[in-house]
């Protein structure tokens, strides 16, 4: 029972960490129709910045997160203007190739600058301690990740469904030409959504570092995981991404606990079964 509970808590926290990173990718893919395989690379950049801020500059965790998010977005903006903008209307294969290329470049350059070692992000004392929930205790950091995930999910839902920006975004996605005629500046909408996706990715990279450690091949190692999660959930759907993250997170964590030497076997088996059963994702948008 104790084991089951701790597996469940771990799986929940891991799923939420995945969610924070992946939801940005789901939005770029579902709403902007860009297969951004470099999404994980931005999470990695966020992790590197936070690690550098925490260990070399001695800044606090909160500052580290802020710096990581801002820094990553600042790096991403020129990339959006120079590279991504050229592939918005291109084929999926072009997008895949271009963003794999960007990933390779980011890995190469990051490692040239920071060296090929594992980077840790120091946790503040409050998050490093276990928190007593009454019936059992849980690592404070896990609780923080879960809370962050819930806030991100709620905030995004509100932003997209309830604000003017969300309306403009959905209009630009449904019919870019019509939206432009109505005076919506689609390129600004796209740039803002892209920045938001990158910011979430960097945030997820930092808070999820306990589960997905920041290391040289991070962007490549988890590229597949992120892509799989988004595809299983159905690109562009917040509840779909949440469901996919929790489901696949649970399968992954449980598998690692119970049959550790099978590695990711059950994870990928589940992916194949889910995609075959729901070729458009758990909650894919029928366009």
């Amino acid at each position: 029972m104790q084991t089951a509970l701790s597996i469940a808590m771990d799986a929940f926290a891991y799923g939420m960490a995945l969610f924070i990173i992946c939801i940005g990718l789901s939005l770029t893919m579902g709403l902007m129709r860009v297969v951004n395989l470099a999404h994980g690379a931005f999470a990695m950049i966020g992790g590197y910045i936070a690690s550098w801020a925490g260990r070399d500059l001695g800044l606090g965790y909160g500052f580290g997160i802020a710096l990581a998010v801002i820094g990553t977005v600042l790096i991403a903006i020129p990339l959006e203007r120079l590279l991504y903008r050229r592939i918005y209307d291109r084929s999926e294969l072009s997008q895949v190739l271009m963003t794999i290329g960007i990933t390779f470049c980011i890995i190469g350059i990051t490692n040239y600058i920071f060296g090929p070692t594992l980077k840790t992000i120091p946790l503040p004392a409050e998050l490093a301690q276990p928190v007593d929930l009454g019936f059992r205790s849980i690592a404070g950091h896990r609780l923080f990740v879960i809370a962050s995930g819930l806030v991100v999910a709620g905030g995004l839902w509100f932003l997209i469904e309830r604000t003017g920006f969300g309306i403009h975004l959905r209009a630009a996605v449904e019919n870019a030409g019509m939206a432009r005629t109505l005076g919506i500046r689609t390129e600004i909408i796209y740039a803002l959504s892209f920045a938001l996706a990158i910011a979430l990715s960097a945030f997820g990279g930092v808070v999820g570092a306990e589960f997905l450690p920041i290391e040289p091949y991070y962007a490549l190692r988890y590229m597949v995981t992120f892509l799989v999660v988004v595809s299983v959930g159905g690109a562009g759907s917040i509840p779909g991404a949440l469901a996919a993250c929790l489901l696949l997170g649970a399968i992954d964590v449980t598998g690692r606990y119970l049959v550790p030497d099978f590695g990711n076997f059950f994870f990928y088996l589940a992916v194949i079964l889910v995609v075959c059963a729901f070729p458009r994702g758990l909650m894919g948008r029928a366009h």
């Binding site: 590279l83 072009s94 190739l97 271009m98 960007i102 390779f104 980011i106 040239y112």
Partner: peptide, 13 residues
């Protein structure tokens, strides 16, 4: 890796 990445980007562009 950087070289391969740059080549890929160049091909697409």
């Amino acid at each position: 890796m950087t070289l391969v990445g740059a080549v890929l980007i160049a091909i697409v562009l």
